[in-house]
Structures are given as structure tokens and as C-alpha cells.
Simulated scan of single mutants.
Amino acid sequence: MRSIEPIAKLDLAFSLFCLQHKFSYPLSRVSRAISHTGDGHLYAFFGLAASGFGGGNGQQFLLVGLMAFAIELPIYWGVKNLFKRRRPHDCSELVTSFITPSDRYSLPSGHTAAAFLMATLMSYWYVDLTIFAFAWASLIASARILLGVHFLTDVILGAALGVGCAKLAMLLAGGI
């Protein structure tokens, strides 16, 4: 574990930098709202709306999305429970957590994984929304750090997991 010690120190320093400034409390309110958009409700709404109003294209989007989440969720839980990385507020009394996370461990960020999974799918089926989708996913990832529940590497690996699972689902769905 010594080989990752410099990364862990950098992660903690970055979290402290993000959370120890005079704007952290007001910023936490905005971050909480942004993070909440990544709780899953919006994904379900968008998938069902696309399926209902987008014809065959929307139905394909929904089915590949369901497949991508079916791939992503077990990997997410497996990695999270394999590494059992403590959250930033559990690593230092100097780190403030502005929300109570839904589970105990931080690596990878599930909110970030889901947001980047959805952004990747949206960028394929709804090309005009690509910039918006990835900006939104990046805001969710940033919000998770600014809320004190994830480290920088948690969201980077979460983003990679989301993109990878979306691409795999698209490949499995017939080389889309």
C-alpha cells in the first residue's frame, strides 16, 4: 500500500484545499443541489422520456442504458467493497462533510460513474447534448468533492467506470 501513499496524500491535500475556504458553506448548498441531480431520478425520467417519445432510437437508448447500469452497478459495489477506502471526512478531522453519504466507502464515486455513463450514452444518441451532458457530469463529480464525500481520484475512477461501462454496453448491443 505504500505505492499509493503519495496519491492518498495528494487527494487529502486537494480535499482540504477545496473545503477550507470562506466560500465552502455557500458553495455546499449549490453542490448539494447539483449532486442531487445525480441520485438517479433524472436518469430514469430521461430514459423513459426518450423511450416514449424518441421512437426506436429512444427505445434503443433506454435498453442500452439499462444494460450499461446492469454492468456498472456490480463493478461499482465490488470495487467499493474490495478497496474499502475511507471517505475524506473519515481521514481527517479538518475535512467537513456537508451531506451524509448513502454508504461507508468512497472509491469509486457512484454518482460520478452514473453521470458519466449517462453522458456517454447521451453523446451517442443525442449528439447535440454532448457538451451539456459532459459538463453536467463534471459538475456532479466536482460537487461530490466539494461536499466532502469523495476524493479527486474517486471521481476520476468513477468517470472512467461510467464511460467504460457505457462503451461496453454499446459494444455488446451490436457494435453501436
Results as ranks from 00 to 15, higher is better:
2 R>W: 05
6 P>E: 09
8 A>H: 09
9 K>T: 02
10 L>I: 10
16 L>D: 07
18 C>S: 15
18 C>R: 15
19 L>N: 11
20 Q>P: 06
21 H>E: 07
22 K>A: 14
23 F>R: 13
29 R>K: 15
32 R>F: 12
32 R>A: 13
37 T>I: 06
39 D>L: 02
40 G>D: 06
46 F>W: 10
46 F>D: 00
47 G>I: 03
48 L>E: 09
49 A>K: 02
50 A>K: 04
51 S>M: 11
53 F>I: 07
54 G>N: 05
54 G>V: 06
55 G>V: 05
56 G>A: 13
59 Q>K: 13
60 Q>I: 04
60 Q>M: 11
61 F>E: 02
61 F>Q: 02
64 V>E: 13
65 G>E: 11
68 A>S: 14
69 F>Y: 14
70 A>N: 04
74 P>W: 04
75 I>H: 03
75 I>K: 04
77 W>C: 00
77 W>F: 15
78 G>A: 03
79 V>M: 13
80 K>T: 10
86 R>W: 06
87 R>F: 05
88 P>I: 08
88 P>C: 09
89 H>T: 02
89 H>N: 12
90 D>N: 07
90 D>I: 00
90 D>L: 13
91 C>S: 10
91 C>N: 11
91 C>D: 09
94 L>N: 13
96 T>Y: 04
96 T>N: 08
98 F>V: 07
98 F>T: 07
99 I>D: 01
99 I>Y: 04
100 T>V: 12
100 T>A: 05
102 S>K: 09
102 S>H: 03
105 Y>G: 03
107 L>R: 02
108 P>K: 05
110 G>E: 09
111 H>A: 09
111 H>T: 08
112 T>D: 05
115 A>S: 15
117 L>Q: 14
117 L>A: 11
117 L>D: 07
117 L>C: 15
118 M>S: 08
120 T>D: 00
122 M>F: 10
123 S>N: 06
125 W>K: 08
128 D>L: 03
130 T>C: 00
131 I>G: 01
131 I>S: 00
134 F>V: 01
135 A>G: 02
135 A>H: 01
137 A>P: 03
138 S>D: 11
139 L>Q: 03
141 A>T: 11
143 A>K: 11
144 R>Q: 13
145 I>F: 03
145 I>M: 15
147 L>Y: 03
148 G>D: 09
149 V>T: 11
150 H>K: 09
150 H>L: 10
153 T>F: 13
153 T>Y: 12
154 D>K: 05
154 D>A: 07
155 V>L: 06
157 L>Q: 00
157 L>P: 00
158 G>Q: 07
160 A>V: 14
162 G>P: 10
162 G>R: 07
162 G>Q: 05
165 C>F: 07
165 C>H: 04
166 A>S: 13
167 K>Y: 07
167 K>T: 05
168 L>I: 14
168 L>K: 06
168 L>T: 15
169 A>T: 09
171 L>R: 11
171 L>C: 04
171 L>D: 12
171 L>H: 14
172 L>H: 03
175 G>N: 14
176 I>G: 02
